[in-house]
């Protein structure tokens, strides 16, 4: 029961982190369109705080971030198998997502801004740990 609860809270943490990351990009895009609106800055700050809290709780405190960024020499054979599986899934997800994003940006004639790029870099780093957090028992 406790294991199931911790699994669910881990999944909620991952979902919250990824959604807040996406929300940061969307809010910034709206801010670009309507520059005079201070509400967007406030929302952006709130979303950023949500991201920081959920990221720290889900990835830093659980050691997942450290685990997926460990050098290969410091991992045992099960951990190597686990990280390589998560990296394979993460690579697939990231590639499809970025290519889809580039295609939609090209179609809609929108520009790529610094928040989008920074979010994508963060997303690429978080994704393997997210896959482990989501799939592991």
């Amino acid at each position: 029961m406790a294991l199931k609860k911790s699994n669910n809270s881990r999944k909620v943490g991952v979902a919250l982190t990824l959604f807040s990351l996406l929300a940061m990009v969307i809010v910034f895009e709206y801010y670009k369109i309507d520059r005079g609106h201070i509400n967007f800055i406030i929302i952006e700050i709130i979303v950023f705080i949500v991201f920081l809290v959920s990221f720290t709780k889900t990835f830093i405190k659980t050691g997942l971030w450290k685990f997926t960024h460990k050098p290969l020499k410091k991992l045992d054979e099960r951990e190597i198998e686990l990280t390589s599986k998560s990296l394979r899934y993460a690579y697939g997800i990231f590639t499809v997502l970025v290519l889809g994003l580039l295609l939609s940006l090209a179609v809609t004639n929108l520009s790529i801004d610094v928040v989008l790029v920074a979010s994508l870099i963060l997303f690429a780093h978080i994704l393997p740990a997210s896959v482990i957090a989501w799939t592991e028992k």
Binding site: L75, D76, E77, R78, E79, K137
Partner: peptide, 22 residues
């Protein structure tokens, strides 16, 4: 045996098959 202690748990629960070397 030179592995992480969590790996022992996985081995004992038969959730992971070790390599021949291990």
């Amino acid at each position: 045996i030179g592995v992480n202690f969590q790996t022992i748990g996985y081995l004992e629960r038969e959730e992971y098959n070790p390599s021949l070397d291990l």
